[in-house]
Simulated assay, not measured.
Amino acid sequence: MTLRYRVLPVIQLLLVFRLFILTNQVVTVMKRDGTLNEPLQSLIKPTFNVSWENNSTYQITFTAYSDNSIAYALLVSENIIMWRGQQFVIKQSVPNYSARYATVAITATHIYLDVRKIYQHNKKAGTLTYSVRDVLAFYLDNNSFGYSYDVQGSFPNQQITDLGGNNAFEGLSQIVSTWPDAMVYPDNKKIVVYSKDAFTKNFGNRLGYGYNSDNMTLTYDSTALVNQLTVISGTKEDGSVWFQPHVINDQTSISEYGVIDGGDFSDDRFHDVNAADDAARAKLVTEPAITIALDYLDNDEPVAGEVRRLEVLETGFVTNVMVVAYTYYPLDLNQKTSLTLNSNQQTVLDYQRSTLNILNQAKQNTLALSTAIKDANDKLNVLTSDGVWYTYGGNTNG
């Protein structure tokens, strides 16, 4: 009896856990008004994928076949796909009829992207100073669509000119362009703006070419480089200035890539020359960007913002990278997950270090080959004093 009472709770726990897993894997279709919510049994599992890209895409796509079910009938525009507790709104529904089979291809975007339905008709004219929360409040406070918001992490106040007169999604775009480190990530209709530090998470996992990736591409892009700016003072009420125009730059970057001038920097908030220079230096882009794309061979679900240790042992490239985009096939583990990884200054430095190692090794290999060739020629050919070449092996050429 004692054993029975000890085992039963464990069995119940396992059953609950199994039920959670099964429920977590179920795709359901819900009518837009919430009156129906049906499991989609006719989903063609290998076609189901989830795609996310930081501050850009968050969607699911799949194909289902006609089984005359209510769920299949609900696969029309603006109805809701439920996946792991998140809502995705059907934006494209493409029926196809072939070989007497009816199917429909679905593209559904995360419901947070429907925040564009909120239009802010008011406009705050002029250049004013805002926090991230100020911008969110201006667009989302008292909206009739049920959207809420939060801010995680610290952001300095910034100036924005003529805020408003557009929809709330464009308001989010304004945040991302004003605060480049901002990352927008939703929980259904709750929109959270994270700082990069607040968004990243590290579980001690790693990525390795030849270990859990068999296809990796590194894109090294210097398009956005700016290593010099001219700092211009704002004007006082009497028309005079606080400080004279002057140049700030990054000599390390210039020595590596040459002068790449970004023009003038001017911000009326800064009356102190040191504060203005610090703000201008924050705008410099002193190193090229690196984007790393790879096929991931493990089956665990990608985590947005996860930091992993990346290793390419053949080149000595070892660095920490952050997941900034993925395409994942959760219902077909035979299909590879695609990951896109971030670029930061340390990543660039690590890449440059590995490239320098490759260059040095190539130079050493070239020197060794040249030495070997010279030694071989010296052994094969001997020039005598009478101008006749003697070649080892008994042949003589005159």
Rank of each mutant, 00 (worst) to 15 (best):
Y220H: 14
F243Q: 04
V231K: 01
Q251K: 12
V231D: 11
G262D: 10
N212S: 10
G210A: 06
W179F: 05
N202K: 12
T200M: 11
Q228W: 00
Y185Q: 07
G234T: 09
D187A: 08
T223H: 10
Y257G: 10
I232F: 06
V193D: 06
I175G: 03
S240L: 00
N212Q: 14
G210L: 09
G258W: 08
M216C: 11
Y194V: 08
Y185N: 10
N227V: 10
Y209T: 00
K201T: 15
G263T: 05
G210Y: 06
R206K: 13
Q251C: 01
D264V: 10
V247T: 15
D181N: 12
N202T: 11
N205W: 09
W242Y: 15
S213F: 07
D187M: 04
Y185A: 03
W179K: 05
K196S: 13
Q251I: 08
L218C: 11
G210H: 11
K190F: 02
N249G: 13
I191A: 04
F203E: 12
Q228M: 12
N249W: 06
Q251P: 02
D221A: 14
G210T: 08
S213R: 00
I191D: 04
Y209G: 02
A224F: 09
Y220S: 05
N249A: 13
P245R: 02
Y211F: 09
Q244E: 15
Q251E: 14
S177R: 15
L218Y: 10
N212W: 08
N227K: 06
I191S: 07
N188M: 04
H246T: 05
T217A: 09
D250F: 07
T219S: 15
F265R: 03
P180G: 05
G171Q: 06
I260L: 13
V192C: 04
K236Q: 13
G258T: 04
Y194Q: 07
G258K: 08
G263L: 08
T178N: 11
Y220Q: 05
K196I: 01
L225S: 04
I191F: 09
V241F: 02
T252Q: 14
D197Y: 01
I232G: 00
Q228R: 14
L207A: 07
E256M: 13
T230Q: 14
P245H: 01
P186W: 15
P245T: 03
S233H: 05
V241P: 01
V231H: 03
I254A: 09
D181V: 08
